[in-house]
Simulated scan of single mutants.
Amino acid sequence: METLPQMSNENKNNNLAPQDDDVMHSIFFNTSADLFSIISNDGFFIEVNAAWKSTLGYSKEDLVGKPFEKFLHPDDIEKTSLEFVNMVKGQEVINFIRRYRASDGSYKWLEWKGKVSEKNNRIYAVSRDVTIEKQLETELLSGKEIYKEIFYSNPNPMWIFDLETLAFLEVNQTTIDQYGYTKEEFLSLTLKDITPEEDMPALMSSAIKAISEYNADHELWRHITKSGEIIFAELSAKSLIYEGKKARSVIINNISKRVEAEKALLESENKYRTY
């Protein structure tokens, strides 16, 4: 009776086959909510992912072969061109925010990160829609009444907390829905009550820094809901004076599903590498 050939130790220790690696990169590229793009060193789109369609309304055919400057707000072209030159020279550009025209003629704020590849001299960039954050920043600084409307109707969790006591001063409905506490319960809690014990030193250190730093962007935290579930939260925060108190306005992006997907993909990758 014939037996199946035994897998050699060499094969067991091999990394993923090139085609497997290509598949995983394709999954990340095409399913991410962030806008991925590959741009030539003279500023033309070479490749984009599906998030461009869902965010700005442009298909791949609308963008590939076109200069990225064509979609910029006229007032942002000069500044962006300077940043692009820096990227082509090899400098990694992080967190620059510019306005891009959507297919309906409106403008959205995109926050960019990009770096040139030494292998092919192309720019590999990722951006995300920060239009809501920019609106909030504008309204916070101007003190307009519309800020309240943005805060309470925001599809992302938002809260305001006291910088000295870390007590919650205000929360929006999305926070209540995702964390499970009533508004009254939230206003009796502090950030310590929703932070895992092992993360407490980092929380206290962050609170001290927040007193002297106006902004916090893309910080990753774990929060505990009323049911005990752990939420992975990416947050941005701005300082303000709220009802006479030094406070912090926070907007949360719940990335728990993304973290779970990345964990599953890593486990799958490790599984492949054992064969």
Rank of each mutant, 00 (worst) to 15 (best):
V85R: 12
I146P: 05
K108M: 09
S256V: 00
D42W: 06
K144P: 00
E184Q: 08
I27C: 06
L203V: 05
T3Q: 05
L166W: 04
K79T: 10
N41K: 12
K113T: 07
S117Q: 09
R99K: 07
A207H: 08
E78M: 06
A17E: 14
T195Q: 04
P74R: 10
G228N: 03
D75M: 06
S8G: 11
L110R: 03
V126E: 13
E164W: 06
N15V: 13
I252P: 02
I194S: 00
L265C: 04
K79H: 08
G228A: 03
E83Y: 07
I160K: 10
A102P: 12
W159N: 12
A17V: 05
S249D: 10
S227P: 00
A264V: 02
S54C: 03
L140V: 04
I39Q: 11
I241K: 15
D217P: 00
S26C: 07
G228Q: 02
W109M: 10
T138G: 08
T138Y: 10
N154F: 05
I39L: 02
F45A: 06
S32A: 04
N11P: 03
S117A: 06
Q6P: 03
D217V: 03
L235Q: 05
D20Y: 13
R258A: 02
L191G: 02
A247Y: 02
A261N: 07
L141M: 07
R222V: 00
F96D: 10
E262Y: 12
Y100E: 07
M1N: 10
Y147L: 13
E137Y: 05
E185D: 14
S103N: 10
L169G: 01
N253S: 15
T182D: 07
S268Y: 13
I224R: 12
I211G: 11
T195D: 02
Y100R: 08
F45H: 08
K226H: 06
T3F: 04
T174H: 07
Y124W: 05
S249I: 13
T138F: 07
E185P: 01
T182V: 00
S212W: 04
E243C: 08
K192N: 10
N13H: 08
D193Y: 07
K144R: 13
S32F: 00
E149T: 14
Y181E: 04
S127E: 08
D21S: 09
K245W: 07
A51N: 15
K70G: 06
T55I: 01
N41R: 11
F168R: 09
E145V: 04
V116S: 11
F68A: 10
W159D: 08
E170V: 01
S59H: 10
A125R: 13
A202Y: 07
E78G: 06
I97G: 09
L187Y: 03
P155Q: 14
D76L: 15
T175D: 08
T190V: 12
N9F: 01
D199N: 14
I252Y: 08
F36R: 15
K66E: 10
N13D: 04
T3C: 09
P157L: 00
Q178W: 13
M204K: 15
S103R: 14
Y100H: 05
E213D: 15
R222G: 03
A50R: 14
L141D: 08
T175M: 14
P18C: 11
Y152W: 14
A51P: 00
K89H: 13
D76E: 13
E234S: 10
